[in-house]
Amino acid sequence: MRACARTIVSAPIESVWTIVADPERVLSFMSGVTRWEVADDQATGLGARYRMLFRIGSAEVGGLIEVVEWDEPRELAWTSVTGVDQRGRWRLRETSGGGTSVEIRLAYGVAGSGLLGWLAERLAGPRVSSHLRTSVQQLKGLVEQEQLRERAAARRAARTS
């Protein structure tokens, strides 16, 4: 099962990347995610591992994931090592207006779980999609707010100098 959400953020691509790639900030904008912690010594980059959980229905599902693509500041993809099968991807692109188009994709399921597995994936689908939509909107709010604060700080600095 696949889910996807996208938005345009009025901020440079680097500012968006700083937030999506920082494991300590994931919980501040990802809806439904209850845990996202660094699982070994490496916190970011290709091969970084996180233990993540996502509340859906009666359970918190997830497991150990590993970053399998790290193309700063455009692509960040991960795949599951344990737990529910999943492949996720942040896809960031600069827009002509100086903003950033942000897309999150998530493919998930439990291989070998048969018809009931298929049914569970379908039933969870709308909730997962809704969480992803909320997440990109929260990310947009967070990045744009930071931009406002940075611009205000720059103006203050210009006035005092």
């Binding site: 229905g57 009666s58 049914l119 569970a120």
Partner: peptide, 16 residues
């Protein structure tokens, strides 16, 4: 692992 979706359906839909 393969039975978790079945249990998830029961736990989430029937027993909330």
């Amino acid at each position: 692992r393969e039975r978790l979706p079945m249990m998830w359906l029961m736990a989430s839909l029937w027993f909330r």
